[in-house]
Simulated scan of single mutants.
Amino acid sequence: MLIDSHCHLDHFEEPERTAVIARAVAAGVGQMVTIGTSMAQSRQAIAMAEAAANVWACVGVHPDHAGTEGPVPAAETIAAMTAHPRVIGIGETGLDYFHDTVAPEVQAANFTAHIRAAQMTGLPLAIHARAADEDMAAMLEAAYAAAPFSFLLHCFSSGPELAARALAIGGYVSFSGIVTFPKSDALRAIARDIPPGRLLVETDSPYLAPVPLRGRRNEPANTVHTAKVLAVLHGMSEAAMADLTSANFRRLFAKAA
């Protein structure tokens, strides 16, 4: 069984959401995690996880949304939301300098609050990092040195240095459909070098549909296409890759085990 470690089910309206989940199960994707991008949307993610036994939730504020609902949430506020039994992680949060919609200092304050919440609760962070490799690595290393925490670099599309520095402090790395794109040779080289025990797979749906579905709306069932490429890169069968990434998921997101 595969697990889609990062998707956005709130982009699918009912009753379609039920059909999307059913198609995932039929494709061999038995569980999925729907991700919070704002405090209000995180509450929606919890409700979706309550409604489906094979859906989990993460809660948090995306860097592009930092400060848009008012002040950056306190770590204690984020941590309190994780008491819900269907919440298994914190995020997505992090740094995004590509879109340039939120000031870097606001993003950093938001990210710091989420790191503190992870340190307080022991739950892992789902991290968004785009065009911010050096600042991301430096913040992770400094925070980890102060108080260790677990984390996942989701939808990895950064460079090898960030991957190496994250792995050095116990991080996990997840790949989306980007790793299947024809021009993603450099990313495939990074994916090939990730230690098998730190590797996860995701869709980030409804975005980033993998080959052979480019241009279509993505959904959790399509995890199988990304996992197939990762299996080739690591020289194992698709079934072995499913078992590996699912075991890694349960180790990282231990609350879901």
Rank of each mutant, 00 (worst) to 15 (best):
I35V: 15
N222F: 15
E134M: 12
G28S: 05
R217W: 02
V201Y: 15
Y207I: 04
I90Q: 02
N54R: 04
V29H: 01
V33A: 00
V173S: 14
S158T: 09
E16N: 05
A75H: 08
L9K: 09
I46K: 02
L199C: 13
E13F: 05
G94R: 02
Q41P: 03
T18Q: 09
S42D: 04
A143D: 00
A227V: 04
R17F: 05
A231Y: 07
P160K: 06
A26W: 00
H8L: 12
L252Q: 08
P210I: 02
E69Y: 05
F181I: 12
K183W: 09
P85T: 11
A19V: 11
S237N: 10
H114M: 07
H62E: 05
F149S: 05
A143Q: 00
H6W: 11
A66N: 09
T203L: 12
D243L: 02
V72D: 10
F12H: 08
G171T: 08
A113C: 08
I115L: 08
E16F: 09
Y144K: 00
L252T: 08
L152Q: 13
T245N: 04
G60Y: 10
H11N: 07
L140W: 03
D96I: 01
L2R: 10
F253C: 01
A131K: 15
E13W: 03
D135K: 07
A129T: 15
A27C: 09
L230K: 14
E105K: 02
P212I: 08
E141K: 14
T245C: 08
I190V: 15
D204W: 13
D243F: 00
A24F: 01
A146C: 03
A164W: 05
V33N: 01
A66K: 05
L125E: 07
L167V: 12
G197P: 12
L95F: 04
A40D: 02
D193A: 15
W56A: 00
N218D: 06
A79S: 11
V201L: 15
N248A: 03
P206A: 11
L162V: 14
E76I: 03
I190Q: 14
N54K: 00
V224E: 06
P212Q: 10
I78L: 15
G89Y: 11
C155S: 15
F111E: 01
I3R: 11
